[in-house]
Write a protein that binds this DNA or RNA. Structure first.
Lengths: 203, 203
DNA sequence: CCACAATGGAACACCTCTGTTCCAGAAAGG
DNA sequence: CCTTTCTGGAACAGAGGTGTTCCATTGTGG
């Protein structure tokens, strides 16, 4: 209803017109809550705010001070993930070099995001909230990359570009699961993922 | 706590020692609730029993009559899925013919199960309840199949057998998503899945 | 060292879901 | 047709989560 309500100052701050920066203390607390929320919600999508507060080492009241409603917290997580994804896609320099190599770089970057992306995957609501459009910037960049690879013959041209995109995500997901549930070392899981991806997307 | 509590007769039935078969009426109602629960819970993992009852076209009281506690309903769903998976694996005749072909047959069978398997994927709790062991019969059969293929050179021998198993699941999942969210026709999604799987698991 | 920012805890009303009981009415089935 | 089975709705208590207020305490920075 109210969307993402931002509260910069303390409860009784007289709302100083322009956007005042958050104090260092508050910024740290905010991050702690956000990070705790990610790990708690990854383990249990229906966890209560009390659980989040405990994991963050913070009182439940404090959580409500930063994120007045549950949806505010979830939206903030979504926005945080969106930013990280965009940054990761940026670092992967999708326009450079052969398409399969660029795709591999992207996988590497995304794999590092770990839990956060798992959460995005599992809780579809995040996509609706927090201004993640139908097709995010990163998704579009990946789509462009796939089309480029299909055009120059380095990626399978006989399947839909969106499908290749989904395949990448699916294999990433499988790799995370392998690491989390089977206890496979992360680098092993990642190299399995990359090897299989290369074959799967080849012409 | 109580596990899967079976109630065969009506409320006041004097518990007729041996296992009495359920009346046709009750069997139909039970199925309706079970099916409704699958589709409702697929859409929203936290849906209430009232939602399930409404979707089943049945009073909430009736749901409680068949499945006294929420966990009983979930366990029943899990058991139902387990049976269907086992039957599907059986129909795929995993021991016959080349391993990639058998794997493709299995994909076809699993794909038909649709929603039910998506649910199993999304709600890990189902695996703990309802007597699905760590490694179900179907999983073991698939693992055996993969090992056979790796030995005779028809499947990639350089990766762990468990990983190839996960890859199959991941691609199936991607195909379902493609059909559900992008509106891709099911047969199209399935053929994309099979094409990519063949390449991904090839040596 | 002192004012103000920031926190934690208790207590509160409110809501939703759960699981239960009871009973009147509909549906089956002999 | 009439009895048994099966159902749906109302009404209830209890549990747990949410969002709020208030106040005492801690801490941080100037």
């Amino acid at each position: 209803m109210t969307g993402y309500r931002v509260r910069m100052g303390s409860d009784d701050t007289p709302a100083p017109g322009a956007a005042t920066r958050e104090s260092a203390t508050r910024a740290r607390t905010r991050r702690a809550i956000l990070d705790a929320a990610v790990s708690v919600l990854t383990a249990d999508h229906g966890a209560s705010l009390a659980d989040v507060a405990e994991a963050a080492g913070v009182g439940r009241t404090t959580v409500h001070r930063y994120f007045p409603e549950r949806s505010d917290l979830l939206a903030a997580i979504g926005a945080d993930v969106r930013d990280r994804v965009a940054a990761a896609a940026d670092r992967a320099r999708l326009d450079d070099g052969p398409a399969p190599d660029a795709m591999e770089r992207l996988c590497l970057e995304y794999f590092e995001l770990g839990d956060r992306l798992l959460l995005l995957y599992d809780v579809p609501q995040f996509i609706a909230w927090s201004g993640i459009e139908e097709e995010s910037v990163a998704d579009l960049a990946l789509l462009t990359l796939v089309r480029r690879g299909q055009k120059d013959g380095t990626l399978d041209p006989e399947v839909d570009a969106g499908w290749l995109q989904d395949v990448m995500w699916a294999l990433l997901y499988a790799a995370w699961m392998q690491a989390r549930d089977q206890g496979t070392p992360k680098h092993t899981a990642l190299s399995l993922c990359l090897r299989t991806l290369r074959k799967a997307v080849a012409p």
